[in-house]
Nucleic acid binder design. Structure first.
Lengths: 234, 234
DNA sequence: GCAAATCAAGAGCAGTGCTCTCGTTTGTTT
DNA sequence: AAACAAACGAGAGCACTGCTCTTGATTTGC
């Protein structure tokens, strides 16, 4: 991530500082007007520099957007990890699950544009670099660790349908992403809960529950509660 | 929807035809290069007319995009209804559920850009007009009807957590959207399944399962199967 | 001390959404 | 049939975008 071990020279320091300033300005614009309206020229104006100068720090608008993407993933990941860590009684997996879920939703509601950048439609052309993947794993990692802890504690999700041969092989990476490995039931239940969590948040945030569900807070809490039950956490 | 009962005059006919041509060209571009890259000028070039002429038919790029949005909703709605109707044995709610789910996913995979337009981040300042809502209800309507039929057939979903007071009031529109009304368990289970369905498709289509799930087809089938079980359909 | 690398700035290109004006065509009304 | 108004297509133009190239100044490392 931070491949700037020691900016010794004055120029290197200035470069690091300016890079940060560009990213900050861009992040502000992103949160306010969204990724589609983010403009390199506007960032340059905000910083009082020529637009062409920005290209010395980020080779393209997409590169700048990618940096913001990673920043957002890390930000959300930190929020999730903080919510998880706040539950001092680590055996309270239900409390941790609830905390994580609400942390994701609160973060999404606080900064809808950044959430949309992460989990909405991929922006123009979009070639998701591998850099983003590693940052994105922070949040899924928190969930997988939680499932592993619950499994280790002897909790069992509600019985799941037997996995097809193909599916067994398909979700191998998920199973073996934590130690000890997740069993099949925990894996499929976890994947379903993962999809339900982000599906609910996205549907809510993108307006698909309009006039269908009246109280988004109550509904989300209910869904999280239901998922906890299906996961065997509560 | 169609407020052109009888285009009598030649001008009205030409207008209807040109409107259709613009929409067709835009739809083609949308499917190919996505909503972000859709250009009024490109559409005008494709049709051999001046870009300013297009504005006689659609007041803005966003209006054109909204028309495409409605078109896409109707297209997906038709695909879903067709898949549902294809199951001649109407009592086979499990088969209908599976058919609907795979219809949505197949449609999404066939035209990812159009799916992203519907269920990804809202593009135009997110001022979703009410016109789109009515078109969007076609697909949710199919699901709700299916749940109602299952309930009427005496099927019961797996026991759900008791609804909070707030949630009971919150999902009233969902419950009363079909006759006879859905009971609380069917409503919450249905909403959760809805979120899981679109969550799974979105996560897959937007690249979040990359290297986590290897076989998207197998995984989706497994999730649909699991949801059917939780819904008590199978 | 000097060559080389780095930098900011400006001009410029090709593209965009959108507006305004202009002359023409069409439909309606007298 | 004539007259008028509405609708139309085309073109020019504005303000904006991402991005490139060149120019000249500054800083760096040897």
């Amino acid at each position: 991530m931070s491949d700037t071990p020691a900016p010794r020279t004055a120029r290197a320091i200035a470069r690091a500082e300016l890079t940060r300033a560009i990213l900050d300005s861009a992040s502000r614009q992103l949160a306010e007007i969204g990724p589609a309206a983010l403009s390199v020229r506007a960032v340059a104006r905000d910083l009082g520099m020529a637009s062409s100068a920005v290209y010395r720090y980020f080779p393209s608008r997409d590169a700048l957007l990618t940096a913001l993407l990673i920043q957002a993933y890390d930000d959300l990941g930190a929020a999730v990890e903080a919510a998880d860590a706040q539950v001092t009684e680590r055996a309270d997996v239900d409390g941790r699950w609830t905390g994580i879920c609400h942390a994701v939703r609160d973060w999404a509601n606080d900064q809808p544009h950044r959430y949309a950048l992460l989990y909405g439609s991929p922006v123009p052309g979009y070639a998701a670099p591998d850099d983003t993947v590693t940052s994105a794993t922070r949040i899924t990692g928190a969930l997988l660790t939680l499932f592993r802890d619950a499994q280790a504690a002897g909790l069992r999700p509600k019985p799941a349908r037997p996995l097809s041969r193909a599916e067994t092989a398909s979700i191998e990476p998920v199973r073996s992403s934590v130690e000890p490995h997740l069993d099949e039931e925990w894996s499929i239940r976890g994947l379903v809960a993962w999809a339900t969590l982000f599906g609910t948040i996205s549907l809510e945030l993108f307006g698909h529950m309009y006039r269908g569900v009246l109280d988004y807070d109550a509904h989300f809490a209910q869904v999280v509660d239901q998922l906890a039950a299906d996961l065997g956490l509560a």
